[in-house]
Structures are given as C-alpha cells and as structure tokens.
Write a protein that binds this DNA or RNA. Sequence first.
DNA 1: CTAAATGCCTAATACCTATAGGCTTACGGC
DNA 2: GCCGTAAGCCTATAGGTATTAGGCATTTAG
Lengths: 192, 192
Amino acid sequence: MQRSPLTPRSVIRTAADLADARGLTEVTLSAVARELDVRTPSLYGHVRDLAALRDGITTLALGEVGDRASEAVAGRAGRDALRALCDAHREYARAHPGRWESLQRRAGDAVARTEEAARSSRAPAAVLRGYGIPEDDRVHATRLIGSFLNGFLHLEHIGSFAHSAPPADDSWRLLIDRLDGLLAHWNAKDEK
Amino acid sequence: MQRSPLTPRSVIRTAADLADARGLTEVTLSAVARELDVRTPSLYGHVRDLAALRDGITTLALGEVGDRASEAVAGRAGRDALRALCDAHREYARAHPGRWESLQRRAGDAVARTEEAARSSRAPAAVLRGYGIPEDDRVHATRLIGSFLNGFLHLEHIGSFAHSAPPADDSWRLLIDRLDGLLAHWNAKDEK
DNA sequence: CTAAATGCCTAATACCTATAGGCTTACGGC
DNA sequence: GCCGTAAGCCTATAGGTATTAGGCATTTAG
C-alpha cells in the first residue's frame, strides 16, 4: 500500500488533529506514529523531539487563529469588529479545542519569533485602531482584550462556567458589549 | 532516621511544593516519592492515582487563593477592594506558580464540589456587592473579573507580555482602574 | 499473646521518549 | 546500465513513568 510520505508538515498536522480529537495531553509521538501507520522512531526524521512537535502545533494554531481573526475583522469597525474578533476566537476554540489548548502553554522561544506569531497580533491591533485610543494606551487595551478573550475562553474550556446559570453565551454577548463601551469611551473616562 | 508518616495531606503538600519549585509538569509520582524518600508504589496507599494527586493540588490551591483573596478584601470596598482582590491573586500566582498552574487545568468533577471551590468564589462576590450592580448582572460581572484575572495572569505566566514594552505591571494597574470604572458605572451605561 | 490491619516494600507489566545502527529504495554521475 | 550515496523507513535497546499484585514487618486490638 502506498503511503503518502511523511513531512514535518504532515506530522504536525496529524498531531494537531489528534489534539483536537482527544486532547493535547494525548498527543504523544507514539500516538502520532500509530495514526500515520509508522513506527515511533521514524518521526524523529521530521521533528526534533516531542517539545518541537508541540511547538509546531502551537505555531500552526497561532497562524490559523490569526488568519481567521483577520478575515473576520476585515471590513468592520468598532463594536462589529470587536464582536467579530471575539467570535472568531471563540469559534476556533470550539472547533479546535486541542489546537486552542496548545496556545495556552509556555511555548519555546522560537515560537514567539515566528511569522505566525506576528500575524496573530494584527487583528486585535486593527480593531483597536478604530476606537481612537491614544497611542500610549493601545498596548494596554490590547492586553485587556487579550486577557478577557483568553480568560473567558479558558474558563469556559475547563468548565468553570458549566455549573452555574445563566449560560456562558449570555455573559459572552453582554461582556463584549461592555468592553466595547469601555473602549469607545476610553478617553472620556479621564474627565470624570 | 525517623520519617514523618505519609498522609494524603503530606503527599499533596509535597507535590504542590514540587510544582512551585519545578513546574506542574514535573510533578510525577516518582518525583514526589523521591522527595519523600519512599518508593513510588507506596504513594498509592494515600492517593488514588496521578489524576487524584493533581486534583488534590488544585483543591489545595483553590482553598489557599480563596483565603488570601478573602483576607485581602476584608474591610475594603469599591476600587480598593477590587485592587486588593486582583493583587492577592497576582501575588499568589507569583509566589506559587505551580499551584497557580494547577488552577488552569480541567480538574475532576469532584473538585468543583469541594468546600474550597465554594470558598474561592466568596471574595469576588463580596467585591461586586459594593458596586451596586443589579442582581441579574452580578454573575456576568463576576465572570468578567474572573476572565480578566485569569487571562492576564495566564498570559503573563506563559510570557506573552514579556517581550513587548511597557512592563506588564503598568497595564495591570491601569486596567484594574478601568475595570473599576466599568463596574462603577455599570448601570449608567444603559442610558447612553 | 495473638490475629488483624497498616504501611511500606519488591516485582512485574505496559507505556512512553529517545538514540543507535541497519536495510531498502530511488537517483545521479559515469 | 551500474554503482555509490543519501533519504527514509525499520528493529533493538535504554531508561523513565504509572499502576497492580503480592510480601513482610510493625503496630494495634481483642
């Protein structure tokens, strides 16, 4: 039987799919090798080690989520853009729980220097540009959105909202609009 | 040499300390056993398995952070209380990185039903009580604070803020005050 | 004083990562 | 067309991990 040849890309893709299907902790070289119908040591020709495989998943996810966010934000501004940005992340987290998990770990230094990492920060920056926030405060606002997005989705993912009413969905809509208000009146607040 | 006897508590404490010292992923039954100068299988008399050990760390951390938050919040209100709550969490995350990490995982169902879990939700509730937020919106505001706190500290922990100026500290102060403003004018916003 | 229970131990199994070294196949220079 | 080489898989092996089974000594209870 013909097997499609192994490549770093195909190995990492398989690992990412496995992560989505069974959780990031189930991603082992053994499991990936089984999936590819290959012996474990054969993978070492394509990825340096397990850490590199995980960093690969992280980089892949970073690029994917960045792309989707950029697409979602394109052509929108203000509240619409903010909602689209947040929803894009949330949908990605739902559709690809394992890939999302891979974004929640401390990755190798190399990951931060990838083109994917740079790409993933463009959408939030674009959204904020529409709010007229002073240059100096932009980074803080970026961190606010990042923190909220990350925190909410993470808490939702680990089930923190699961056992209390109302559904997380309600909070999601409401809080995004509150954040929109905060960003829209960022400067006004100073005058109080 | 006299060894202090093993108990579920002492095993979990040792595991938690190990997590703080070397990271949660380094917490293995082997490592804990080495630390306690005991053979690995001996631990099974005190913890069911590795998952239970991890859940034990999570429960311990939940209780500790909840206590510190409650202490910090006691006798304060409004912005002071919010700052104290946030700082208590941040200081705990810094002093006990491994225990903090243990709060970021999907824990067993049993953890959510512990007394510690209930205790840990009291401080945020107390803080919000001071803001005059309508009953129905309390839970959303709680989730906002939880999301921000969790997200910010998590991103800081994995190093997301490390390679861009200004220091995370600046954003921390500023964003907490912004959130205070948002909470303080929670109702006013409706009338815009 | 003895029997049971407690609490640690050794032994064994089944995975896992990782390295070393061998076999097969395709391909380019001659 | 032949042969050396390199790519890409393989087997074998070492060492670390969780977990279970069963043994032995010491403490505790009757």
